[in-house]
């Protein structure tokens, strides 16, 4: 029996990031994707000390809600912070999720805050029993709160590991086995680790429970002082596409391959760059758009929301 209740009979679909108001970009990628990845930390803003979804972006999302489903992928939860995760991230999820048909939500297995201070970067958690004791109840809390699949993404390790008690894959296997959460397999992150300190991608994939992988991330980045950085700023390298092809052959539950690009990089390269890259990736994997019947969302509510926003 497959323990993962999310087998997609049609196989994986393409997905890409949409984090800044740009209808040309959205319309350009729409023929290729079944999912749009959105990051609450990017699409929310603060007004008078209160978080709100940027209305123009929400309007964009609602305008395509009959054609795609959404993958909510956060950066600000800081699930690995000793003092606890950032509850304000979940407040934003509470505001966002009623508006959209979200297939699943996800976060990074790392931390961005220490003692309340924002690090402005993300660090990997130690792979220890003490960390598992912190993480497992937090994951379960999130799962029970939202009643939809929750995925974790392994991140790059720029700093030396703190006395690891588990291998990278072994730690992820324990987390998924204990909680039933899914995984995002980020092949570009693995390539960064391989480049930066000789991480063995093949051994990692051989040890990882690939049945837990529901989404695959790919991206292109940059090098700095000889380090390959996970910065989502460019085209996907052939090596990343090759790893992805190999991984897809062993990830039966992978529903989405997401090409990630930062809004800052979209501004730098232009929307057409992203559209062309999405088209190239789609062609490389011979993906076909499955189409999407908005059954689990609420089209009437979406129309109502759109009407309110347009009026506003």
């Amino acid at each position: 029996m497959n323990p993962y209740p999310f087998i997609h009979p049609k196989g994986p679909s393409l997905s890409t990031t949409y984090d800044a108001h740009d209808t040309y970009l959205l319309e350009g990628v729409l023929p290729y994707v079944d999912f749009i990845e959105i990051t609450p930390d990017s699409i929310f803003r603060r007004r008078n000390g209160i978080s709100e979804i940027q209305p123009d972006i929400l309007k964009d999302l609602l305008s395509v809600s009959r054609d795609v489903r959404f993958l909510v992928h956060g950066v600000g939860l800081s699930i690995g912070s000793w003092e606890g995760f950032d509850a304000s991230y979940l407040d934003n999820l509470d505001l966002l999720l009623p508006h959209i048909d979200c297939a699943w939500h996800s976060e990074h297995l790392g931390y961005v805050k220490v003692g309340g201070d924002n690090l402005n970067t993300m660090l990997a958690v130690p792979r220890t029993d003490a960390m598992l004791e912190l993480l497992i109840p937090r994951i379960k809390t999130i799962q029970s709160k939202y009643g939809m699949p929750f995925l974790l993404e392994h991140i790059v390790h720029l700093l030396p590991d703190y006395q690891p008690e588990y291998s990278d894959a072994g730690f992820l296997n324990l987390l998924t086995a204990e909680t039933g959460c899914g995984l995002i397999l980020d092949l570009y992150n693995l390539e960064c680790d391989a480049h930066n300190y000789g991480f063995d991608i093949e051994s990692f994939l051989a040890e990882l429970d690939l049945g837990a992988v529901r989404e695959i991330h790919i991206a292109g980045g940059a090098e700095y002082l000889g380090y390959k950085l996970d910065i989502h700023s460019g085209k996907v390298a052939d090596s990343t596409l090759n790893w992805t092809r190999q991984a897809l052959a062993h990830t039966p539950n992978a529903e989405a391959v997401t090409y990630e690009i930062l809004p800052e990089a979209v501004r730098l390269h232009g929307a057409q760059f992203v559209i062309d890259e999405v088209a190239r990736i789609s062609s490389y994997f011979n993906f076909t758009k499955h189409g999407h019947q908005n059954t689990s969302g609420n089209p009437a509510a979406a129309d109502q929301n759109a009407a309110v926003l347009c009026a506003g």
Binding site: N120, T121, L123, L158, L159, P160, N196, Y224, L225, Y227, L229
Partner: peptide
């Protein structure tokens, strides 16, 4: 790599 993280 600590310097790289600080620079980021």
């Amino acid at each position: 790599s600590l310097a790289v993280v600080r620079d980021i």
